[in-house]
């Protein structure tokens, strides 16, 4: 068998540009200073659900307000995880595991203390009719929740009627739809038409295997999204007042 020096034919850029500091070292610099809050935030970073609940209880025993803990410990811990993911320090499963721990913490606060927090906005997510491939939607849903959005997840193989009814009921700031196949992604066209008929101008963020920017751009409310990590940024941009034309300018990369 022949062998060669691979460095003359390929470059492992991931090795070349890897950051010097470990995720733990970077996070350590970002954790809040106050001890009780710091412990909750660290438990979120580590994605340890039991530790999250325990540290919340400890903090409350020490006199901290549960709502304060949601906003300034749970959400802050999650923000650190999201920032490190955006900066290429953490990987997606780290975000998923931490988000699960954060939601566990929020649920604990709600159940035990009757307190909830305000979400940044509400978003409806779904997989188009005829399509059962939903791992992309699951990723998008977790990333949105991790960024403080309330997500109404309609699931997979969702018919147009159900999507429109959910939008009318929930009044979301945006809709996210995913599709793997060419023949199912036509469902975006029907959602677009039905929303316009009802004078609803909510952005429809579309992504998934066969979906392309050219296809989505045909529809007035359509916004193409190539990377799941961009979806929370799109939501933030909508909160900041960008319309569909401005969103396309910002997020259509091709």
């Amino acid at each position: 068998m022949i062998d060669i020096n691979p460095q003359r034919i390929l470059v492992r850029y991931n090795v070349k540009v890897e950051k010097e500091m470990t995720p733990e070292e970077v996070a350590e610099k970002l954790f809040p200073v106050e001890e009780n809050i710091r412990e909750v935030a660290k438990a979120i970073f580590e994605g340890d659900e039991d530790e999250v609940v325990e540290s919340i209880q400890n903090a409350i025993n020490n006199g901290l307000d549960p709502l304060n803990l949601i906003n300034n410990a749970l959400m802050v811990g999650m923000e650190i995880v999201s920032t490190l993911y955006d900066d290429g320090v953490l990987y997606l499963p780290d975000v998923i595991i931490s988000a699960q721990a954060m939601m566990e913490g929020i649920e604990y606060c709600k159940e035990h203390f009757g307190q909830d927090h305000e979400y940044k906005g509400k978003i409806v997510s779904y997989v188009v009719e005829g399509d059962i491939h939903d791992i992309g939607k699951k990723i998008v849903t977790v990333l949105l929740r991790a960024k403080g959005y309330e997500v109404v997840d309609l699931g997979k193989d969702v018919c147009v009627e159900e999507v429109i009814a959910a939008v009318k009921k929930e009044k979301p700031i945006m809709l996210t739809g995913t599709s793997l196949m060419t023949t199912t992604m036509i469902g975006f066209k029907d959602v677009n038409s039905r929303l316009l008929e009802s004078d609803i101008n909510v952005p429809v963020v579309c992504g998934g295997g066969a979906v392309t920017q050219d296809f989505v751009s045909q529809y007035e409310l359509g916004l193409y999204c190539e990377e799941a990590a961009d979806v929370p940024k799109i939501a933030d941009a909508i909160i900041n007042g960008l319309n569909i034309s401005q969103l396309r300018k910002e997020f259509h990369k091709h």
């Binding site: 850029y13 991931n14 540009v17 290429g88 320090v89 997606l92 499963p93 791992i135 990723i139």
Partner: peptide, 12 residues
């Protein structure tokens, strides 16, 4: 596909 390219950070 989730693992993606060399610089993607979605999955080890």
């Amino acid at each position: 596909f989730i693992a993606g390219g060399l610089l993607d950070r979605k999955l080890a």
